[in-house]
Design a binder for these strands. Structure first.
Lengths: 230, 230
DNA sequence: TGTACATCAGTGAACGCGCGTTCACTGATGTAC
DNA sequence: TGTACATCAGTGAACGCGCGTTCACTGATGTAC
């Protein structure tokens, strides 16, 4: 039947394709994401997808970028709900809680970006890196504020290798030596919230049932007590 | 050519199939694990595998069980290298270091058991559970020793729901109320080492380069300082 | 305003591939008498 | 010890499936004169 009437086409097909892709990932994981299945769900032919994404990997890349952006923005929004200088404690907690909340809301997006690497998929690092950094920028900036106001307590903390750091990041985002402590501490804190959250959303915290939240709150307090001068 | 001469058959074909499966998982992840590919590599026909595993899922289950067992035994061995009563600090460190070392040695096995759930695979929980528990028994027993000698410092720690706990575990392994604190603290410590290790083996700790070890040591000390009375 | 034409956004058919699994079979090997 | 037979551990062919991607195409829509 060739091309259907414009009035019968899906408006914003590119977004609809991504939505259908998320629905599939939610059900069966990214490795069984299939262009043909997406086409079937949207009642279009599979080759039509190639008008919007050059191949399957490009679709996966777009999903990953969207996930990073949504995750980062969600935390930044939470953080900014306590904008005042002396609300640093609330800011830290709000950011930490937003981290978990987003992961619980979108477990498959979380696992797509931070879980087991997608087999057979080679991420275009240059394209993705800015979004990767944005996804953690709320956390990094909270630690940065603590540091700049002299409240960060992290003596003898093992620092990044600054050379390795700058080899990894693009030149314009090079980490300044005076920021090394902030990045390094942020990494450790990240690993703690990631550990708890990833066990929870993969169902490996089962005896806690619906109370993974209590454990998470405890962990946020532990982090605060360890790294913040009161 | 029907069946080849016994002298030309692979001795212990069951083990060889699992070895080939691990080699494949190492290269491309579990979701592209293929019976036909295994058969090709071993120069046997694909249906021959059905003499050893009723279907693909059964093979995956066997791999998971082996991974849990190997992981658990490796930590127990490390722990037992400091058997004396007053070597509790060394015992704790050795167990923690063994946790990371095994994960670095076998990243794909680690991700198979603790990473993103395998899509389309429903683990037979009853069969796997004992091995799951064994894989963390070294950690749990070290915390248990600390508790029983009065060295565990964890006031106001959020505990499991004991009912949820016993609904989860088989009756004979039911968690006794006096052990609840031990299990709960072990879970939190587990989440910390898991967080750091999983970021490291999935390559998300890159600025640290080869010195993820320094960060890990710092984290082990943090845990010790937080939970042990000195 | 009408018309010729370019472009846009789809179509269905086809290619070549790999997969898990079933099936009837075969001949080497082990065993009971 | 020789022989008849059961069992064991493989075989190749086939089934039915879904996949990503390419291809030539078509007719609706937009645009220049």
């Amino acid at each position: 039947m060739s091309r259907p009437l414009r009035s019968q086409q899906i408006p914003n097909l590119r977004e609809s394709i991504k939505d259908a892709a998320w629905r599939q990932i939610t059900g069966e994981g990214v490795s069984s994401l299939s262009l043909r299945k997406i086409a079937r769900e949207l009642h279009i032919s599979a080759p039509a997808i190639y008008n919007y994404f050059p191949d399957r990997d490009a679709l996966v890349t777009a999903l990953i970028i969207d996930a990073y952006a949504s995750f980062g923005d969600f935390q930044l929004l939470a953080k900014e709900s306590y904008p005042q200088f002396d609300q640093i404690i609330e800011r830290f907690r709000a950011t930490g809680l937003a981290y978990r909340q987003w992961a619980l809301d979108y477990p498959h997006r979380y696992l797509l970006i931070f879980g087991t690497p997608v087999p057979g998929y080679n991420p275009p690092i240059a394209e993705i890196l800015p979004f990767m950094m944005r996804s953690l920028s709320a956390l990094v900036s909270v630690i940065g504020e603590l540091h700049h106001t002299g409240l960060l307590k992290a003596d003898a903390f093992p620092l990044f290798d600054v050379d390795a750091c700058n080899r990894f990041f693009p030149v314009r985002d090079a980490v300044k030596p005076q920021e090394l402590l902030v990045y390094s501490v942020a990494m450790l804190i990240w690993s703690r919230v990631h550990g708890l959250v990833s066990l929870e959303i993969t169902g490996q915290l089962p005896p806690f049932g619906h109370d993974g939240g209590a454990l998470y709150l405890y962990e946020l307090d532990s982090i605060f007590n360890q790294f913040v001068t009161v």
